[in-house]
Design a protein around this nucleic acid. Structure first.
Length: 473
RNA sequence: CGGGGCGUAGCUCAGCUUGGCUAGAGCGCUUGGUUCGGGACCAAGAGGCCGAAGGUUCAAAUCCUUUCGCCCCGACCA
């Protein structure tokens, strides 16, 4: 991506939209802000889902499914939650050909309906911890939709847990945040910062919101997942009570956490380049594509025969796609698969078969090399590992280059202008000061990282004593 | 909701200022042939109520009025 594109977010936004559509991940639908996820994009989501689901189950959670429609009275029970979500809710007022007595809210998230049920499921300390998760769609009526990043309807997983003690619930909040961090780094090759949100940015109804934040190639930060410590807020609003070991009636301590189809947007914006997507092998729907090259019919039979053998050798170890479409030339296919971000490409023609070799090309470096036919499978597996690691290292290096330590406001402003990225700076902890900075520079506090220094300088903006070291972007 | 811009072929758009002939281009699509190791070429085709309604005029994609829809920039956000 040329530097000027990184600097001008408008162009970056155009690049993003164009790549998502041309790579056949998704399109806008006729319903404003809603997205049609195409087969290639959905295959990507399925791979994310499969691995994340495994991680969620390994940490002891079970899947459930709750209704999409929530009675209005549930939505109004938790005060902050109502305030935060009411403006962006879609509400069903008519059904069965008549007005409804009680409007039904299409879920923007499921805390309310799930807690209404947990109050029935939970009676005793023996019922705790209650650890559930659901894969679902939710609707939030956003003003400015963008494919995958902010659509009216999106797919996600939302975990909801209830615990005996505050300590247990806090541990769960951190455990799931770390599951997200590990997933982002290991599978998506996106290095992320973990931290806590300032009060302005936290979830409506939470005591604390923790997040993973990745730095995109335009220098903007993207929240890729959140884990909330809910305290007893929802338990009190929905009467989620249990009888403790001591026989007292107590409110449960709760958490909720989620990641969404936004991860796909993060993937595109972290790793993409001028040629299109660049998908980490572990999550790519197609890990290696084979492009056959031939002219005459007898060559075609020879090449396709050899490819059939390769396919059999690879079996389930590599997600392999053979592009045997007749209507496109090899050069056209190279470009198409680069646009779609396939990590490794194999070219094979009559000359290669004669010499007992194939051509293997890497999407991330563009390297093209002859590989002996006999060692092909191992070479591909090695290349996939190398691409996975290469993408992570490159993204980490980019983040490091784009993280500026700012002791004073001028340094911060200059960095935002010249090398947009994370600004590491001291902050006084005052919400009004945070709001001023946002009005002045458009930068917001993305996270208060867990890694904190021993001492703080004065607040970067107002010069009052610093309370936290924060990341602006 | 404020400020800009755009609606013409499946897609991207030209034409409109200064009204006039059968409404155009590129890409894509169909058929045939030659091609195929980095987005091939030739030939022949298919495809339009020029966003909608009303008005001015001998004549409207073009001028006027109204209306609907979409995109971009701000307030919201996983």
């Amino acid at each position: 991506m040329p530097d000027e594109i990184i600097k001008q977010s408008v162009d970056f936004s155009g690049w993003y939209q164009s790549v998502v559509q041309r790579a056949e991940l998704a399109d806008y639908s006729d319903v404003k802000g809603c997205m049609i996820i195409r087969p290639y994009g959905y295959a990507l989501w399925e791979n994310i889902q499969r691995d994340m689901d495994r991680r969620i189950k390994e940490t002891g959670h079970e899947n459930v499914y709750f209704p999409m429609l929530i009675p209005e009275r549930f939505m109004k029970r938790e005060e902050q939650h109502v305030e935060g979500f009411s403006p962006e809710c879609a509400v069903v007022t008519h059904a069965g050909g008549a007005p409804l007595e009680e409007p039904l809210y299409v879920r923007p998230t499921s805390e309310t309906i799930i807690n209404a049920t947990l109050s029935k499921w939970i009676q005793s300390w023996r019922d705790l911890p209650m650890l559930i998760n659901q894969w679902a769609n939710v609707i939030r009526w956003e003003m400015r939709p963008r494919l995958f990043l902010r659509t009216t309807e999106f797919l996600w997983q939302e975990g909801h847990t209830a615990h005996e003690t505050e300590k247990e619930a806090r541990e769960e909040t951190m455990r799931m945040l770390d599951v997200y961090r590990a997933f982002a780094e290991e599978m998506l090759a996106i290095p992320v910062v973990t931290g806590v949100k300032s009060d302005n940015e936290k979830f409506a109804g939470a005591v604390n919101t923790y997040c993973i934040e990745g730095l995109m190639r335009d220098g903007k930060s993207l929240q890729a997942g959140t884990s909330h410590f809910l305290g007893q807020n929802f338990a009190k609003a929905f009467n989620v009570q249990f009888q403790s070991r001591e026989g007292r009636l107590e409110y449960a301590w709760q958490t909720s956490w989620g990641v969404s189809t936004r991860l796909i947007g993060a993937l595109v914006m972290t790793h993409g380049d001028d040629k299109g997507l660049m998908l980490p092998p572990k999550i790519a729907p197609v890990q290696a594509v084979v492009v056959p090259i031939y002219r005459k019919e007898d060559q075609k039979a020879l090449v396709l025969g050899e490819i059939a053998k390769i396919r059999a050798e690879f079996g389930a170890d590599v997600r392999l796609k053979v592009d045997d479409r007749e209507q496109y030339s090899p050069g056209w296919k190279f470009n198409e698969w680069e646009l779609k971000g396939v990590p490794v490409r194999i070219e094979i023609g009559p000359r290669d078969i004669e010499k007992g070799q194939v051509v293997m090309a890497r999407r991330d470096t563009g390297e093209k090399a002859f590989v002996p036919r006999a060692g092909l499978k191992q070479a591909v597996l090695d290349a996939l590992d190398a691409v996975q690691k290469g993408l992570y290292d490159r993204a980490l290096k980019f983040r490091q280059e784009r993280t500026t330590d700012a002791a004073d406001y001028d340094t911060m402003k200059r960095a935002l202008d010249e090398t947009p990225g994370f600004i590491r700076a001291s902050w006084c902890g005052d919400a009004a000061c945070e709001a001023n900075i946002k009005t002045d520079t458009k930068a917001t506090i993305r996270a208060i990282p867990f890694d904190q220094p021993a001492t703080f300088g004065p607040c970067v903006a107002c010069s009052k004593p610093g309370k936290h070291q924060v990341l602006f972007a």
